[in-house]
Design a binder for these strands. Structure first.
Lengths: 209, 209
DNA sequence: ACCTGAACACCGTTCAAGT
DNA sequence: ACCTGAACACCGTTCAAGT
């Protein structure tokens, strides 16, 4: 007889997440609906509730994997020539470019991570993964401070400034508010912005304590 | 007899906009609904369609007035001591602080302006007001270049970098991702960030044409 | 002109029921 | 355990109708 496989088995949760990413990429987080995800996964519109308490829990899962992937990209930002003199500073710069690159390559993650109002306290894994990603950046700042290529002082403050810069670039680039067409143009602009900030940071004036 | 005033008269459009701002402030743009706005304005749920073709047109109107108010804040950013030596640079810096201040004081505008996916080409007034606000920033960069406190080169590039920085600060501050409680703390952080960037910009390395 | 009520096709979420 | 269909209260939008 016909389809003798009415139930999904085991992989439904990841199938839902994959379908969600695809849908968010197509229509954005605002127009994303749970029922359309279920349709694409070939299940009834309330089967997702077996795996996610509510729509936002699915989106929180998307954001969490986004932060995990971002943390990896920041920690291993492309190839660094192994013989350079001050690799920590280079890795710090490269992590900024990696941040923007992540946002442009995975806007479906990035927009949920930052533009969707998820109550972080309701999704502890999300808060953890976000903190973890930020601590990668702080670690890079500290390493650069140790080798003397960034001034002393609170590494969190410097990390927050650098984060703000690349976050602004990423957000405005995704929204196509910046006058660049291609990703290489945006990344080249990102490099210039980071170098500009670096020039000011290394003069090190306002970083008391 | 009882209520002999069944119709709104003339001011309904602005009443709708005011109710919309209040509602967005309370629940955010994502949870904003046209029907709730109509309820608050005391009219039926489809009366708004007399003034706005669709929900997004009302939101586009909110965003447009937001850009207009922002442009004003950027152009006249607080008090500048009248006897300072290089006022253009100070006004440039102050406009950055004003940008973040606007975002924190009017998140209901800011979030619609930047976090709601409005198709700019469908709302020409929105595109115009946004361009106008950006040109204020470019003008401040050019003035600082004329007085020699910013290096030469394409003012749009410098403006884009400065914009990215303050936009990132504003966005992360609204989302409460930065470790600051009060607005004064955020604004003080903003000043430090701008000064850091300034230090690098004034060294003027990577601004070829 | 400006507003209304009924209607349509959606949505998130719940629940009793099926295997 | 995992899934289904029916149901509820919402939403954006349309339309014929009222003053």
């Amino acid at each position: 007889m016909a389809p003798q496989r009415p139930y999904h088995h085991g992989n439904l949760k990841s199938a839902l997440l994959a379908a969600a990413l695809e849908l968010i990429r197509e229509v954005g987080p605002a127009a994303f609906t749970l029922r359309e995800v279920a349709r694409r996964a070939g299940i009834s519109h309330n089967a997702p509730y077996r795996h996610f308490r509510e729509k936002d829990e699915l989106l929180a899962a998307v954001a969490t994997t986004g932060f995990e992937r971002l943390a990896k990209q920041l920690a291993r930002p492309g190839t660094i020539p192994p013989h350079v003199r001050k690799p920590a500073l280079l890795r710090f710069h490269a992590s900024g470019v990696a941040y923007v690159q992540f946002a442009l390559k995975s806007p479906e993650h990035f927009l949920v991570m930052f533009d969707w109002p998820l109550e972080a306290d309701r999704y502890p894994e999300l808060a953890t993964s976000a903190t973890c990603a930020f601590s990668v950046l702080v670690g890079l700042v500290q390493a650069a401070q140790r080798e003397g290529s960034l001034p002393g002082g609170d590494p969190h403050g410097i990390a927050c400034i650098a984060w703000s810069l690349v976050h602004g670039v990423a957000k405005l680039a995704i929204a196509k508010k910046l006058p660049f067409q291609s990703m290489v143009e945006v990344l080249s602009f990102t490099k210039r912005a980071i170098e500009a900030l670096q020039g000011g940071l290394s003069r090190g004036a306002p970083w008391k304590n």
